Simulated assay, not measured.
Amino acid sequence: MDRWMELIPETIRSRYDLYNFNSAVEILSQTHVNAFAEIMDTLDRFQMELSDISEKGGNESNVPKKLSALLRPLGWNETEIAGDLVVRLLEGKSRKAPSREFQLSDFISGHKIDYVKGEVAVDLEWNSKDQTFDRDLYAFRTFFECGVISCGVLITRSERLNTVFDFLGYEVKKKYGASTTWMGKLLPRIHARRHGGCPLLVVGITPETISDWKGE
């Protein structure tokens, strides 16, 4: 077992697929102790039912609603970042005073993360188009490079849920297709550094989180 896995409770390790990028777990557990405890407790309490999977709808389904019900009362709020860029040109040898100064309005605009508290951000992608991961990773990168967060947690579907989809039938399996948000579409994007080096704990939701799944 990797040493960072020892920092995560066994109840979480047994119910999720976990990936640690840029020492996110170490940063969370040592620098953001309270936030880390809240995230671990939320993952421990999070449960789905088979009906949550088979219902119609995408990212507005019961799955993100159940996560919100656990995080929102603790002060984890959707947050958008916006900012202007002030550009100064310094000429000559002294370069003490700008010869020209101007502002690029809305240089940073439109980047949102579902749950932010302090310097930690959490996002969930349950069943959106896989291109949504590009938006999410760029948002984490922007928040990180602007000094708003120091690490993030990104939650999505584990490949192991395919067994459940097969059991629930063709229509369900079709809904959760290969071009939607699941771990196989996320990890290559992170390996390509689309998150810009922002420390990320990636969490894969597995069949062990489904309360009425008996392993059929």
Rank of each mutant, 00 (worst) to 15 (best):
V172R: 10
G177I: 13
T209W: 03
R193P: 08
T206I: 10
W182M: 10
P199K: 00
G118D: 00
W213M: 05
F143T: 07
M183A: 07
L154Y: 05
D136T: 03
S158A: 07
Y176P: 14
K214T: 13
L200K: 01
I155W: 06
E171S: 15
K174H: 15
R194F: 03
G184S: 11
W213S: 03
I190M: 12
T206Y: 13
W182C: 13
V164W: 05
C151A: 01
A139N: 00
R157N: 14
R160T: 13
V172H: 11
T181V: 06
T209C: 07
V203Q: 04
I149C: 00
C146M: 08
L154D: 01
V120E: 00
T156F: 08
W182D: 10
N162L: 09
A121D: 01
L200P: 06
G177Y: 15
L137V: 04
E171M: 12
R160F: 11
N127S: 15
K175N: 10
D166H: 06
T181H: 08
L186K: 09
F140L: 02
T209I: 07
T132Q: 07
S179K: 12
D212V: 14
C151S: 02
T156A: 11
K174A: 06
S179Y: 13
L201Q: 02
D166F: 07
L186G: 14
N127T: 14
G197S: 14
A192M: 11
R193N: 15
V164Y: 07
W213V: 05
W126G: 02
L168Y: 14
V122E: 00
S150V: 07
F144D: 01
V203F: 08
H191D: 10
Y176D: 05
V203K: 05
F144R: 00
L186P: 15
S158Q: 02
